[in-house]
């Protein structure tokens, strides 16, 4: 008796290239569920993006802040640190200082920052706005212009706010991060809408919204599983890579931040935060994540190891 059950996919995930030249990266392209390399020809390697903020984050856990102490106020150095010390292949730049209430930095200033970081670091970049629709629509087009032809990815675009950002990405040869609120329908609708204004699907990466371990992780996990299954069964509008913002969720959990003194039975504080980030990241690897946006170097190291083992084709 041949004890094997092979699922053949009728479709594969669209390959998306980030960046240009020798540092460019390919994500997507999978034609099987995550890491089942025996039934798929292309099981691509998930990538970890290192998160860099344009201004010092105010709400970070101490253990996290300590890791970036020397660069936390200097986004360019921060990005260089990620590249040189942490071996980053992809930078996720967060433009939180654009927010009208928290810095209100101008589009020009931030566009210059994007240009400078790219010039110094020369890595593919994902650039995320401040979340204020109006301001993002001013800032992101300027940043896209500043990175014209660099094949960077801009977000978040949402179903209520995609037209302006998508249009400037079309003009500048960049791509978008399509953000939906843990909802497979809205994820797909947004891809359709973005595609219909003229951006090709291989310039779109899905941000499905994830929950941290213990905080709704399973919703996002199942939404991603469903989307990936539908994609492999032929749904082209869902067959796009996923980017998951792991750290911003996991480090908000009280289990990541609570001190050992307050919770003596929860174990070591520093490791707890790291493992919380790593387990959250691991879970989404198995749901089909292509890009994991992470923070703690130690968590990055653990998850890199998991990716390496999961993509090791073994003996057979």
């Amino acid at each position: 008796m041949e004890l094997e059950y092979i699922e053949k996919s009728s479709n594969s995930i669209t390959s998306v290239i980030l960046g240009t030249g020798s540092t460019s990266l390919k994500v997507g392209g999978e034609d099987a569920l995550p890491f089942l390399y025996r039934e798929g020809k292309n099981v691509s390697l998930p990538i970890i993006a290192h998160e860099v903020f344009d201004s010092a984050p105010s709400d970070w856990a101490k253990s996290l802040k300590d890791e970036f102490k020397s660069v936390i106020n200097k986004p360019i150095e921060w990005a260089l640190y990620c590249k040189n010390e942490l071996n980053a292949k992809l930078i996720c730049l967060r433009l939180s200082s654009a927010h009208p209430d928290f810095g209100n930095n101008s589009a020009d200033k931030l566009a210059k920052l994007c240009r400078d970081i790219y010039a110094k670091v020369n890595l593919p970049m994902v650039i995320i706005g401040c979340g204020d629709d109006k301001k993002d629509n001013q800032v992101l087009p300027e940043c896209s212009k500043a990175l014209k032809g660099k094949n960077c990815y801009f977000g978040n675009t949402t179903i209520d706010n995609y037209k302006t950002i998508a249009a400037s990405c079309i003009a500048d040869g960049n791509g978008v991060i399509a953000h939906s609120p843990i909802d497979i329908n809205i994820a797909k609708q947004l891809n359709i809408l973005i595609n219909e204004v003229g951006l090709p699907l291989d310039k779109v990466i899905i941000n499905p919204t994830v929950g941290a371990l213990g905080y709704g992780l399973e919703y996002a996990y199942s939404i991603m599983e469903r989307a990936r299954l539908a994609a492999l069964m032929g749904d082209k509008m869902l067959a796009l890579p996923f980017i998951c913002f792991i750290a911003q969720e996991s480090w908000r959990a009280k289990e990541s931040k609570a001190s050992e003194k307050d919770n003596p039975d929860w174990g070591k504080e520093l490791e707890r935060g790291i493992y919380w980030e790593a387990v959250t990241a691991n879970s989404f690897l198995h749901a089909g994540a292509d890009i994991l946006v992470m923070r703690h170097p130690k968590a990055v190291e653990i998850v890199s190891k998991a990716i390496k083992e999961l993509t090791n084709k073994g003996i057979k």
Partner: peptide
């Protein structure tokens, strides 16, 4: 048996075995 290792794993189990 380190709590910082076991706690996230037990939490993951709770999440994944919850009723969708």
């Amino acid at each position: 048996d380190a709590p910082e290792v076991i706690f996230p794993l037990l939490t993951l189990r709770q999440n994944i075995y919850s009723d969708p």
